[in-house]
Simulated scan of single mutants.
Amino acid sequence: MSYAPRLSRFGDSGDSGDYWPGFVDALATLLLVIVFLLSIFLVGQFALGRALTGRDEQLAQLNTQLSTLTDELSLARGENQRLTTEMTALRATLSDVEAERDELSDQLVIVLGRLDDTQATLVESESLNAEQTDQLTALNLQAQALRDQIAELSALLDAAEAREAELDSEIINLGERLNAALASRVAELARYRSEFFGRLREILGNRTGISIVGDRFVFESDVIFPSGSAAISSEGRESLEPVAQAIIQLTREIPDDIDWVIQIEGHTDPRPIRSTYPSNWHLSAARAISVINYFEDLGVPPQRMVAAGYGPYQPIAQGDTEDAYARNRRIELKLTSR
């Protein structure tokens, strides 16, 4: 049996079978694409790293400024306390000096009266003996001493009044500095509040039953609790968990010297309830406390939370419709100072 004819027929076909150059070109092209994508990825990572580094530097600078402002505020408060104490002591001294001056003035009037009487008597008698002369001299010396004491007390009184005016001016300046520092802290807290709500908007997206009303984050109670109950549902836990994580992150970012809390408020509709709770007051407070307990279980510091129950007495929707009732049954979160 001969194999030559078969090899000859295979070699004579129209397809030469040389696929390797095309395969190499495809691999080279794919490799170039991969290298290009890796280059873009590395450039993006570098840019992101630079941006994060800049943000960390800004945050560190802000913390330094807050620390400096806190020190200045503490010094201003101490100076204000010292000046207030000094002012109180000065006013007491001023009162004593005024009383002493008034007493000396009365004594001077008496001495001057006696002096006038003595001089009148001497004029009538038209003769002076040694005893009367000594008496007149003593009265003149006493009157002059009283005048000197009154002049000295008047000078002390003027100096005290000038010092009081100076202290008043310093206290006014310190008050303005304190107000400016407090205004700065309020503005700082407002900035953190804005960032906190912005973060919650990104986390929660457009979920039904969640909205922002003014400076408050509002959850409709139907999203969190079953009807007439303060036990958080599984869906409610799912909605509240990212909020708790945002609060924990906020706790790390706000400086410790800013005294802030998350106020958690419970609200109900005005219809009488038919449950184990005796009134809407109890139900609203119990729901706020349930949210706090759940947040605490997730790691939110308890000293940064406060519960309040308003019952049906702070509605945000008017009317007797089911939609109005649903909007008024809610849990509100507010970042505020304590």
Rank of each mutant, 00 (worst) to 15 (best):
T268K: 00
Q263S: 14
I264G: 05
P270S: 14
I247W: 12
T276D: 10
V243A: 03
P242C: 01
S275T: 12
D259M: 10
T251E: 15
E235I: 09
Y277C: 01
S284N: 02
I258K: 11
S233N: 03
P255L: 02
L283E: 08
E241Y: 07
R271Y: 15
N280I: 11
Q249R: 12
P272V: 15
R271K: 06
D256F: 07
S234A: 13
I258C: 04
A246T: 03
P270C: 10
Q249H: 03
G236C: 06
I232Y: 09
P272A: 15
E238N: 07
R271E: 12
I247L: 10
A244M: 08
Q245Y: 14
P270M: 07
A230H: 05
L250K: 11
T276Y: 02
P278M: 01
I247A: 10
D259H: 11
R274S: 14
E235T: 04
P278Q: 08
V243P: 11
N280A: 12
S279N: 14
Q249I: 03
H282R: 09
Q249Y: 02
Q249C: 01
A230E: 05
E241C: 00
G266V: 06
I232M: 06
E241I: 03
I273Y: 03
P272R: 14
Q263W: 11
R271G: 11
A231G: 00
N280D: 12
R237Q: 07
P255R: 04
P255W: 08
A231L: 09
Q249E: 13
S229L: 02
Q249L: 13
Q263F: 10
D269Q: 14
S229H: 03
E238R: 10
I232T: 05
Q249G: 08
S239K: 15
N280K: 11
S234Q: 11
Q249N: 04
V261S: 12
Y277Q: 03
S279T: 15
P242M: 03
P255S: 01
D269C: 14
D256H: 09
A246I: 03
N280W: 06
V261C: 09
I258P: 09
A230S: 13
I248K: 06
A230P: 00
S233D: 00
D269P: 13
E241M: 09
Y277G: 00
S229K: 06
P270V: 07
P278E: 07
A244F: 11
D256A: 01
D257A: 10
S239A: 15
R274G: 09
R237C: 00
E265K: 12
E238I: 05
P278R: 06
N280R: 15
I248D: 04
S234E: 11
R237E: 02
Q245K: 13
Q245H: 15
S233I: 06
S239R: 15
Q263E: 14
T268Q: 01
T268F: 05
V243F: 12
T251V: 15
L250Q: 11
D259Y: 05
H267F: 15
T276Q: 12
D257L: 06
